[in-house]
Amino acid sequence: MPIIVMNKNSLVSISDISRDEMLDLLRRARYFEENPDSKILDGKIVATLFFEPSTRTRLSFETAVNRLGGRVIGFSDAATTSSSKGETLKDTIKMVSNYVDLIVMRHYLEGAARYATEVTSVPVINAGDGANQHPSQTMLDLYSILKTQGTLENLTITMVGDLKYGRTVHSLLMAMQYFNPTFNFVACPELRMPQEYKDFCDEHGIKYNETTEFSPEVINSSDIIYMTRVQRERFSDIMEYERVKDRYTLHNDMLADSKPTLRILHPLPRVNEIDRDVDDNPKAYYFEQARNGLFARQAIITRALGIDPEK
């Protein structure tokens, strides 16, 4: 039997945390936005282990630690580490655990972060494991929604684009279960929301509409439009990609009759699913959204270390 190490401050998947823990993280994020110079990680060392490169996520986590006064060690690409010489993940995690107070890791293999929590007593934050989980993205999405709408309750959230493979929309859907949302799922048949997530909605009494049309009715009813990238390689039929790719592109004129409080989110990087002419519309929120990632990650890091910023 594997020894299960108590490692309750880790964050591997958004479904690991309760509604109260989510709200606590959002309170922390707000605190860090309002108090940017809290040096509460003085003396702490955080490892950022990026077995798969992701400059955007790594910089966000490392900035979060540095702004809180902590120090960072780690690597940004597995090619430069002993894992490229065949060292197991377990051995790498155990070695690093001797030096640090917290591990932030990204891995190309799915389940890597969950496994890491079982071989160390140092808390682990999952910064993405293949196509599986990326909970800090979900927390920054929730924080962005809360900040722009003033609440998470009773909102109409429209998800557009790749709803089949897009892990960010799946995690956001799961996280919103506590807040009585209404979803619009807008996608072509090849990239529609998987049945298991629609079943999840049914089981939790969550209302949703599914459509292939990115129509004015859908746009004008929305509080949040969450755009995702539609990637060519997701299509088995390249002609189908050519047919649908522009149908799910958001242009500024489509927002003419939308709610004044509507905000457009996108996990970035975008390709062409949001036209550049939307960028100057005050409803475009995707650049600020990325900045919220800093506060959301500061919240997750301090929770993992058991540090309460307000004490």
């Binding site: 377990k90 293999l109 799915e110 494991d129 196509a131």
Partner: peptide
Amino acid sequence: IVGIVRCGNPKCISNNEPMA
């Protein structure tokens, strides 16, 4: 169920690391 079945996902950590 521990240690009886192989995961069907080739990108799963359990197919790439000596573990149950």
